[in-house]
Amino acid sequence: MRKMLLQYFFRNMDVQLLSIPLFFFLYYIGIFLLFEHSFLAFSSGLIASVGIFTILFLQFYQRSKKMFDVMPIPKKKLVQAKFIFLLYVAGVYVVLFNILHALIIHFREESEWSGWMETVGTTLLIILLVVNLLLFLDFLPNQKIASMMIPLLLSGIAYVLFLSPLHGLPTVEMFSTGGMLATAISTAFLMTWLHYRIIIYLTIKLDIL
């Protein structure tokens, strides 16, 4: 029974399971490049990945709950399966982030990594913004959603501006430690929100779920 539940959860959450760390790795690169502060980038990226996945999973579970509620499945087993699934995912993310972190460190020490990494990071960010702009246009007839998109876009622009010091200025001199932390937290929040919107966009457009 537990195996069936875990298979069901994995099958229905596979897109999110793979895409979330990808998006947060992008955030990780941004923070790492900007502040050269790998622990901050690593821990907040990991926490945000697990956090956003948990939220999406619980939303998905809510949609399946009514089906499970009337089945001969002991409630205890359902709760256990939920926790075991989230533990698995957290474990996968910890391993994944550690591998990525080790790779980044390796590249940093072995090669001139920062040049292409900057380009890749900035390109991905621009893609994110374009996707969100499409989202904005797509939902335009729905004024409520459109109005929610405006602060998102503003935040996106702010984020790009925030990354501009990458191209030359010594950032550590520009910001105090407190400012760095505040910016990192807002960036994590922004990336979470961007990712959430993108998942919704992909779900609707590509009929993934």
Binding site: N12, F60, R63, S64, M67, D69, L209
Partner: peptide, 9 residues
């Protein structure tokens, strides 16, 4: 129930 309570995907 009055609706089909299964995930619609």
């Amino acid at each position: 129930f009055d609706e089909l309570h299964v995930p619609d995907n």
